[in-house]
C-alpha cells in the first residue's frame, strides 16, 4: 500500500523543525495538525504523518512500532484523501533552501556505510530487545581527505599515520554505540588513547591495510575500547577507492542520553564500515553532521 497508494518520504525532524524555507513551512503546517500539536514548539514533532501535497492533514501517530496501528492510520488517511478534489497546488522545487540545514555528500568525496551491532543473545524470557537492532549511519570524507589517505609513494611495507582529522572523526562520531537511538558523541577530552595507521601491503595493486585502536571514557559512566582493521583498494585511474572495508571490535559500557537500555556492565560492540551505494538511503548525512563545522574540522586547531 505504501508503495502504490502513497508517496513515501523520510526525514529528520531536527532539520525540518529548524528550516526557514518552504519545506520547513510545510512540515510545521502538517505537524501542527497532528498528534503533538498542543506541545510547545521546542518539543519534537516526530512521528508518521499522512498529508496532501498542499498540507491538508490526513492522519498521524507517534512512532508506535505497531504495524497494525500504522496500517489503520494509512487506510483512514486514504479514505480521507479520496474525498478531496484533485490537488491544484504548485510546488516550488527550486525555492531557496535554508543553507544552514543543507547537507549534501562531499563532491568527489567518500561516503561510507557504518553499521553497528551488539553481538549478545536476547535476554532469557524476552522475545526481542532493542539491543538486537543495527545501528546505522554514514561517514563522509571530502575529496581532499580521501586523497590524504594515500601514501606519498607506493612502496610495500610503508607505514604512516591516518591523518589526525580523519582519525578523530572516526573515533568521536563513528566508534559509538548508536544501537538504541541517537548517541552522545565523544568529546575530545573523552579520548584516552588511540592510534591509527595505514600500511602499503601491495603497491602494485594499490592495497592498504588500516590498523588501530581507540579508548574512550566519559566520566565513569560510559566508555569504549575498540580495535580497528581494514582493507582499502585504490583505483588510481578512476581516482577512487574500490574497496574500503573497516571492522571495529571491542567493548563498550554505559549508555547515552537517548540510548537507554544498554546491556549491564561491559558488552561487546562491533562496527563495520564499507563503501555506500548511490540510492537515496546512501545520501543521508552523518548523524553528527548536524553540527557540520565540528564534524568536518575535527582535530584542527
Amino acid at each position: 500500500m505504501l508503495q502504490t497508494e502513497f508517496v513515501p518520504y523520510a526525514g529528520d525532524q531536527w532539520y525540518l523543525h529548524r528550516q526557514q524555507d518552504e519545506a520547513g513551512k510545510y512540515f510545521w503546517q502538517v505537524a501542527q495538525q497532528g498528534h503533538n500539536r498542543n506541545l510547545s514548539k521546542d518539543i519534537t514533532r516526530q512521528g508518521v504523518y499522512a498529508a496532501t501535497a498542499d498540507g491538508k492533514f490526513l492522519g498521524s501517530l507517534n512512532h508506535s512500532g505497531s504495524p497494525e496501528r500504522n496500517l489503520e492510520m494509512m487506510r483512514t488517511a486514504l479514505q480521507r484523501f479520496r474525498k478531496f478534489e484533485p490537488q491544484a497546488v504548485r510546488i516550488e522545487r527550486d525555492s531557496p533552501q535554508d543553507a544552514r540545514y543543507v547537507r549534501t555528500p562531499p563532491k568527489e568525496g567518500l561516503v561510507l556505510n557504518v553499521f553497528s551491532r551488539i553481538p549478545l543473545p536476547v535476554p532469557s524470557g524476552e522475545a526481542w530487545s532493542p539491543n538486537q537492532t543495527t545501528g546505522r549511519d554514514h561517514l563522509w570524507l571530502t575529496a581532499e581527505e580521501k586523497q590524504s589517505l594515500l601514501p606519498t609513494t607506493w612502496q610495500n611495507g610503508l607505514r604512516y599515520p591516518v591523518p589526525p582529522a580523519i582519525a578523530e572523526r572516526f573515533i568521536r562520531f563513528h566508534l559509538v554505540d548508536n544501537i538504541r537511538g541517537e548517541p552522545d558523541y565523544w568529546e575530545r577530552d573523552h579520548l584516552r588513547q588511540s592510534e591509527m595507521t595505514l600500511t602499503v601491503v601491495d603497491a602494485a595493486k594499490k592495497i592498504l591495510r588500516w590498523e588501530g585502536f581507540a579508548q574512550m571514557q566519559r566520566a565513569k559512566t560510559q566508555g569504549a575500547e575498540v580495535r580497528l582493521q581494514g582493507i582499502l583498494r585504490y583505483d588510481s585511474k578512476a581516482r577512487h577507492f574500490t574497496q574500503f572495508d573497516i571492522l571495529s571490535w571491542g567493548t563498550a559500557w554505559g549508555e547515552g542520553t537517548y540510548t537507554g537500555g544498554a546491556p549491564q556492565g561491559r558488552f561487546p560492540l562491533v562496527i563495520a564500515l564499507s563503501l555506500a551505494g548511490n540510492r537515496a538511503v546512501d545520501r543521508i548525512p552523518p548523524q553528527a553532521s548536524r553540527t557540520v563545522s565540528e564534524y568536518f574540522t575535527a582535530a584542527r586547531p
Binding site: D12, V30, A31, N178
Partner: peptide, 14 residues
C-alpha cells in the same frame, strides 16, 4: 497523498 516518516535522527540513516 504523502506518507511522511519524520523522526529525531533520520529514519533511513540513524
Amino acid at each position: 497523498p504523502l506518507l511522511l516518516w519524520i523522526m529525531d535522527g533520520h529514519p533511513l540513516g540513524c
